[in-house]
Design a binder for these strands. Structure first.
Length: 271
DNA sequence: CACGGATCCTGATGGC
DNA sequence: TGCCATCAGGATCCGT
C-alpha cells in the first residue's frame, strides 16, 4: 500500500503522540519479511524518542537502537489506546505507557527490524542503497539528470527502483510521469535535460500534494489514527484505464512493466 | 553489472 | 462455503 506519502502521513499521525513513551511489552504475530533481529523482550523499559522516515521506512528511535518499520504492500500502523487482542493480521504490537503501536499487514511483505544504530550493518542492509529524499534539499536537479543518464531502463522502472530517488511507488510513478508529459516506457538515459527537469519538479509536486491529501486510500490504507487518504480522487491516470484523460480527453491506457500496471495518456505523454 | 522475471503472502473481484 | 484466474500500494533475489 504505502508509498512515501502514505508512510509520511502515517508518521505525522503518531510521531508526537508516541514520543517519550516507555515500552512495556512486545507481541509478535506471524513472521514478517525479515526477523526482528533481537529478543522482543529486550525492548522493554526503553523509551521511544521519536519517529523519522527514510524512503518508505519508518524509523522509531529508541534510547538504545532503533526499529525500522516497513509497510510492504498491505501494511498499516495504528497507535492509540489499547485496541484489545491482536487480530488475524496484526503481526507486531508494541505496548507503551502512552498507547499501543500495532502493525497490521495481511500480505506480510512488511517488516519490523531492530538495529543497534542507523549505521550498523543491519540498518545499512535496508537503507544503504536508497536514493535521495525527493522532498528534501538533497534532491538536486543536476544530480538527478546525471543519474538518469546512466540508466537505460524505462523511466517508470528507474523511479520505482528507488536507487535514484526514494519513495515513488506504483501510483505516484504514473502520476509524476503524467505531470511531466513523459511516456513511462521512455528510456531514462534518453530524456532531454528540460524533460528531466519537468520530471524532477513533478515528482516533488505529486508527492507533496499526496501528503497534503492524507495519501491514497485504494482499499484499506489509513493513518495511525484510522483516517483515510483522499489523493486517489484526484489521480490523473492511476487506476483510470479506459477513462478519458482529464486534460485532453484521450482514453487512458494501461500496460505492464515489470509485473506492475502502468497508466498513461498516449497523447499528453510523449515517448 | 544492469536489466527483467520470478517470488514471497493473503484477500478481493469477476467470469464461468 | 463454488472454483479458478487475475490483480493488488514493495522490494529482493537470481539468471543472463
Amino acid at each position: 500500500m504505502p508509498e512515501l506519502p502514505e508512510v509520511e502521513v502515517t508518521r505525522l499521525s503518531f510521531a508526537q503522540r508516541i514520543a517519550g513513551a516507555r515500552i512495556e511489552g512486545v507481541e509478535m504475530g506471524k513472521p514478517l519479511r525479515w526477523p526482528l533481529g533481537c529478543d522482543p523482550q529486550d525492548l522493554r523499559g526503553q523509551r521511544v524518542l521519536g519517529v523519522r522516515r527514510r524512503g518508505k521506512y519508518l524509523l522509531l528511535d529508541l534510547e538504545r537502537g532503533l526499529l525500522l518499520l516497513h509497510l510492504g504492500m498491505s501494511g498499516s500502523v495504528t497507535f492509540g489506546a489499547d485496541p484489545g487482542p491482536a487480530g488475524k493480521h496484526d503481526h507486531f504490537s508494541l505496548r507503551t505507557s502512552l498507547g499501543v503501536l500495532r502493525l497490521n499487514d495481511p500480505r506480510r511483505f512488511g517488516a519490523v527490524v531492530f538495529a543497534a544504530d542507523e549505521h550498523s550493518p543491519e540498518a545499512q542492509k535496508l537503507l544503504g542503497k536508497l536514493g535521495v529524499e525527493p522532498l528534501g534539499d538533497d534532491f538536486v536537479l543536476e544530480d538527478f539528470c546525471k543519474a538518469l543518464k546512466k540508466r537505460n531502463a524505462p523511466i517508470k522502472q528507474v523511479l520505482l527502483a528507488g536507487e535514484t530517488v526514494v519513495g515513488v511507488g506504483n501510483i505516484y510513478a504514473s502520476e509524476a510521469l503524467f505531470l511531466a508529459g513523459i511516456r513511462p516506457t521512455t528510456r531514462a538515459s534518453r530524456l532531454s535535460r528540460p524533460r528531466a527537469a519537468r520530471l524532477h519538479t513533478a515528482v516533488r509536486q505529486v508527492l507533496a500534494r499526496a501528503v497534503e491529501k492524507g495519501g491514497s486510500t485504494l482499499r484499506d490504507f489509513s493513518n495511525a489514527q484510522g483516517e483515510s487518504g483522499h489523493f486517489q480522487l484526484e489521480a490523473a491516470v492511476y487506476g483510470r484505464a479506459g477513462l478519458p484523460c482529464r486534460v485532453c480527453g484521450s482514453v487512458v491506457r494501461t500496460i505492464r512493466q515489470g509485473q506492475r500496471s502502468t497508466f498513461f495518456c498516449p497523447v499528453c505523454q510523449k515517448p
